[in-house]
Structures are given as C-alpha cells and as structure tokens.
C-alpha cells in the first residue's frame, strides 16, 4: 500500500497501460514538454517519447476527431482536455462520432477512446471555465461516464477505461489533483459501474461523485455532531449507474439528498432522483432533495461563487430537512 496523490494515481494508470499496450497513446494540449497543465502527465514525454505523448495545438475538435479516427482502426487514444470546458468545442466529435460509430456501423466498428481532464469549478475562474459537463455527456447512449473521488478509484477506473472498448468520458477535478489516498501496490483495473459506500449511516443518504463526495463526507461529520447519521454513496460511475447500490442505500434510510456540481435543471441529479422514486418509492419518508449549483452562470466574485457551488452548510441544511421530515 502506498499513499498517492490523485494526479499521481492517474499518471500511474496511464503509464502502466502504456507499458502494457503499445497502441495506447496520450494526446492533448501541453501534455508533453510542459508536463501537463496540471502536471498529471509529468515525466511521461521523457519516458515514452513524442510518438506516444503528443502535444497538440489548440484544436479540440481536431484532436478529438483524430482520436476517434485512430480508435476506429485499432489504436487506444487517451485524449486530454486541458479542462472539460474546452470539450464544448469538440462536442460534435464526441456526440456524433465517438458515441455513434458503433451503432451506425451495425457494430462493425468500435471506438476505444478515453477523453479525460479536470471538470467542474476551479476557483474563481468565471463563467466560461467553471462548467460541470457531466450532464451533457451522461445523457448520450454509447458513452460511459466516470467520475472518481479518490486516488484508488482514479487509478483503477482509468486503467479499466483504457482497456474498455467503448468511448469513455473520464472526469477529474482540479481541486482534487493534490488529494492523497492509499493505493494498493499492484492495483489492477476496477470494475466500471460500481458505486461505493464511503460511510455507513442510518438517518439520511447522501449521493455524490467526484469532488462532491468529499463535501458530503465533511457534511456527514457535521451532521453526526447533531446526532444525524448520514450514509454517503460515492457513485464513481454516472453511466452505467449502479442502481443496486443506490437503491439499497435509499431504502436503508428512506431519505435521500443528491449532491452535485452543475445546474439543477435536468441532468444527473434529476436522473438519480427519478431512479430512487421509481425503485424505492415505498421506502421513502421524504422527497428526494437535490443540492446543485445555483441556476445561473458562474460569477467571478469569490463570495458569489461560493454561494453558487454546493458547500458543506447547504448540504447539511438540506440533509437536515430530509432527515427531520415528518419527525418534528
């Protein structure tokens, strides 16, 4: 067992898979000479050379498409978006080519590609650089969408993603890159589509993924001091969604709060709320509540940004409401 930072776990996953399979390569802006905008790929150019660690110009649509084409004929690209905000420029490639080529070719072609990079808010980077893009991607059949919260899952899931024959959207977080966690020495790929219970609880179930899992764990600490015992589900994968774990955790407490970045209208929180109300209706003691970013573009001002992004106090207040409903 070793302690790794999130970014180191990602780097190990890529490095091990590139050692194992010569068809895997990494492509993106500043991934090579600059060592990665967020230092995820540090040292990889030196190790693998510029044939396999490829710096691109600012041409997201172009290099996403190059990745798709290369994947269709047998390579296994890892395409890094400097941040997922810039994937909007490449959206057509992901939506129309990566996700569809398999079905529209009647299953003749597949597209084993991983698109990865930091997603969601950073700090005060304003409305065009703070998008939580999972809502846009999780709705697309043909894609798998992963959003780990801990280094161990970052490594195991990225390895699995690289080996998977489907196109994968792999969401990281700038504010998680330095987070440390224990990772077993010989960790292999982690099965895609399994949620984890990060914390057991009896009174209310908090459902989250990526950075918000950490916010929920903190909120659970606060709730514990008030005598409310919160269970925290870390989804890890948004598509496929682990309904079994989700529904079991929902039935256990009968009170659920879904916490995510990104806007409330539609999207992942709405999807999860729908599954819970359909599959655990008879166990529910309260409506499924959501804590999401406020329904406005992200402002620059620090205090307003904090108001917009889900924080521990808002999660606590919402969980309290769910836990107390019908009891006060």
């Amino acid at each position: 067992m070793r302690t790794l930072r999130f970014r180191e776990a990602l780097r190990e996953a890529m490095t091990e898979e590139m050692d194992r399979d010569p068809s895997v390569f990494l492509m993106g802006e500043e991934v090579g000479h600059y060592q990665g905008a967020y230092k995820v790929s540090e040292g990889m150019l030196e190790r693998f050379g510029d044939k396999r660690v490829i710096d691109t110009p600012i041409a997201e649509s172009g290099f996403a498409g190059i990745g798709v084409g290369a994947a269709m004929v047998g390579l296994r690209p890892i395409i890094e978006f400097m941040t997922w905000n810039f994937s909007a420029v490449a959206f057509d490639q992901i939506l129309n080519n990566a996700a569809k080529v398999r079905q529209m070719s009647g299953g003749q072609l597949s597209c084993p590609i991983v698109f990865r990079g930091p997603n969601g808010s950073a700090r005060q980077v304003g409305s065009q650089h703070s998008h939580a893009m999972e809502h846009f991607y999780a709705t697309i059949p043909g894609l798998k969408v992963l959003a780990p919260a801990f280094p161990v899952d970052a490594k195991g899931l990225l390895k699995a993603a690289i080996r998977d024959d489907n196109p994968i959207v792999f969401l990281e977080s700038e504010t998680l890159y330095s987070v440390k966690g224990e990772v077993p020495d010989d960790l292999g790929p982690t099965e895609i589509g399994k949620a984890g219970i990060v914390r057991e609880g009896a009174d209310v179930t908090l459902v989250a993924y990526s950075r918000m899992t950490h916010v929920c764990v903190e909120a659970a600490d606060v709730l514990a001091r008030e005598g409310i015992s919160a269970e925290v589900v870390d989804l890890r994968s948004l598509r496929p969604l682990d309904e079994d774990t989700l529904v079991r955790a929902a039935r256990k407490t009968g009170r659920c709060v879904v916490v995510h970045e990104g806007w409330p209208y539609g999207g992942v929180g709405a999807e999860i709320a729908d599954r819970i109300q359909r599959l655990a209706f008879d166990w529910l003691e309260a409506p499924v509540l959501r804590v999401a970013s406020l329904d406005v573009p992200m402002p620059y001002n620090r205090a307003l940004e904090e108001t917009c992004i889900p924080q521990v106090p808002r999660v606590v207040a919402t969980a309290r409401r769910a836990a107390r409903r019908g009891r006060d």
């Binding site: 600012i58 905000n85 810039f86 909007a88 420029v89 005060q124 980077v125 304003g126 409305s127 065009q128 650089h129 402002p299 620059y300 001002n301 307003l304």
Partner: peptide, 26 residues
C-alpha cells in the same frame, strides 16, 4: 462587469469594448 466577470471578462460597452472571452477562438 460588476465583479461577475473578473480578469478574463472585461466588458465596457459604453466604450465599445465588447469583452474578453475565455474559450480560445470563440
């Protein structure tokens, strides 16, 4: 920009400065 835009999004329509934009080329 009333504190909502920040460094990357300076707008001053009165002077026909139609803004700073964050997505390259957009």
């Amino acid at each position: 920009s009333r504190g909502l835009g920040g460094s990357m999004h300076m707008f001053d329509v009165e002077h026909n400065m139609l803004g700073g934009y964050g997505i390259v080329g957009g």
